[in-house]
């Protein structure tokens, strides 16, 4: 079981990194989301894996799962939605403004930016 979770986290991380290194904003955002999954599951797994033991108190149950990472990850999931929404909005604004969704500045753009700064 542990091996399955660890390999899933590893795969999600690898796929996320690969997509983050792409040259267009959309795959970068997808990559970021994949890494978010990986990190959330990673944090959750820090409570170790427990099957069939809820974090809800019940009579005549003695074995519980670790509730703390769950609570932390729960808010992290919601916050990551907020973060994704902001990043997507920034990417969208950049695309609509420049009609270009490339991540890297070309050499020309950099030159103009430098001139603007001076």
């Amino acid at each position: 079981m542990e091996l399955l979770v660890a390999s899933a986290i590893g795969l999600l991380t690898a796929a996320g990194i690969y997509l983050i290194l792409r040259l267009r904003t959309f795959p970068v955002i997808l990559g970021l989301s994949l890494i978010t999954y990986a990190v959330n599951v990673f944090l959750f797994a820090s409570g170790r894996l427990t099957i069939g033991a809820p974090p809800v108190l019940m009579d005549d149950v003695t074995r519980y799962t670790d509730p703390l990472p769950q609570a932390l990850v729960l808010t992290a999931i919601v916050i990551s939605f907020g973060m994704t929404a902001v990043v997507v909005m920034i990417a969208l604004g950049a695309f609509l403004g420049a009609d270009d969704d490339a991540v890297d500045d070309g050499p020309d753009e950099q030159a103009t930016e430098t001139e603007d700064a001076v």
Binding site: E2, L3, V5, A6, S7, I9, G10, L11, L12, T13, A14, A15, G16, I17, Y18, L21, A38, F42, A45, S46, R48, L49
Partner: peptide, 19 residues
């Protein structure tokens, strides 16, 4: 791909280690 695979293996190793 090399960077990504290295990162993935690292994440997997770390997770498996502490699990």
């Amino acid at each position: 791909t090399v960077v990504a695979v290295a990162g993935g293996l690292a994440a997997m190793g770390l997770t498996y280690h502490f699990l």
